[in-house]
């Protein structure tokens, strides 16, 4: 039950939204899927003004860009696209299977019908599934501000801290753009949860390419191990450019990860166990990803 009263606005355009945001500067919050915001408000977080952006046209599209040869070069996913839309989108499944797989594993189906990619990234929970995968896929975040000024920054720059992003109070995340490569790709996402459909304790999202000779673009993104989702850069460079990746290499990387990153303990799982699992799940994800391009 939400106790404190609040104003509710439902602008029909970005312009109108920015007007409201500036009028209620510092007091207003955007609502997208509401699957984080509403629970927070029920817990007592006071939000005097809610701006529902779901009536604004153009934020729900999944758009493909093609290169000169007609190959898909990037996909722009509108802020209001839900996890379920992502999961079911053919172009996403084909070109960004890691994104589709990640989305299909978030919470449970009722959440997936409501939660949005823009909301998840803006909310910026360090262990959120999509934050890790956005990093792994080198996503760029498209932002619009007052006067319809647009800017775009990498996911990496966008995530600032727990529940903290580079978004200003009067800015709206409008889309997330993912580069697409024509190279052979391998990927996987693995997470530790306390129960089926639970929020991850941590998550490992892996993406890599193989140009026929060597492995490139190795991306290992981790969520839940720090203030925000992060890329395990040193570990990636250990594998980047290799002609082959063996089980031993993967074991070494998984071990290295546990030396560099520290998942939290909880009432139910000790720190030692969680750390052990970080190595196990990293290894599982890497093995599956490598097998996709070699096997």
């Amino acid at each position: 039950m939400i106790i404190e009263p609040f104003q509710y606005f439902s602008p029909q355009s970005l312009d109108e939204a920015f007007e409201i945001l500036s009028e209620h500067h510092g007091e207003a919050k955007i609502i997208a899927g509401g699957q984080s915001l509403i629970p927070l408000m029920k817990m007592g977080v006071e939000v005097p003004c809610i701006v529902d952006i779901k009536k604004i046209p153009g934020l729900k599209a999944i758009e493909l860009s093609k290169d000169g040869l007609g190959n898909v070069s990037s996909i722009k996913v509108g802020a209001l696209v839900t996890y379920n839309d992502i999961e079911g989108s053919n172009p996403v499944k084909k070109n960004l299977p890691l994104l589709a797989k990640t989305a299909s594993g978030i919470g449970h189906p009722l959440i997936r019908n409501r939660g949005t990619i823009g909301g998840s990234l803006s909310h910026c929970d360090p262990a959120a599934d999509l934050c890790a995968t956005a990093l792994a896929l080198n996503a760029r975040i498209c932002i619009t501000g007052p006067g319809l000024k647009t800017r775009s920054i990498s996911a990496d720059e966008f995530f600032k801290g727990p529940l903290e992003t580079d978004l200003q109070d009067d800015e709206i995340l409008t889309a997330v753009e993912f580069p697409v490569s024509a190279m052979k790709m391998g990927y996987d996402v693995q997470k530790l949860t306390l129960g089926h459909g639970d929020f991850p304790v941590f998550i490992v999202s892996v993406s890599l390419h193989n140009d026929g000779k060597k492995f490139t673009d190795i991306a290992i993104a981790l969520g839940g191990v720090g203030e925000t989702a992060v890329r395990a850069g040193e570990c990636e460079s250990l594998l980047n450019g290799r002609e082959s990746i063996t089980d031993e290499d993967i074991l070494e990387v998984s071990k290295m990860i546990t030396e560099k990153y520290d998942p939290p303990s909880s009432a139910e799982l000790s720190h030692d166990y969680t750390l052990d699992m970080l190595a196990v799940y990293t290894r599982k994800a890497l093995i599956n990803a490598v097998q996709m391009v070699t096997g």
Binding site: H108, L194, G195, H196, G197, D198, F199, A267
Partner: peptide, 16 residues
């Protein structure tokens, strides 16, 4: 009680 919530007290769901 530290987990007075269905999110934290885990009763089985269909998948299990």
């Amino acid at each position: 009680i530290e987990n007075p919530s269905l999110l934290l007290y885990r009763i089985p769901n269909m998948a299990q």
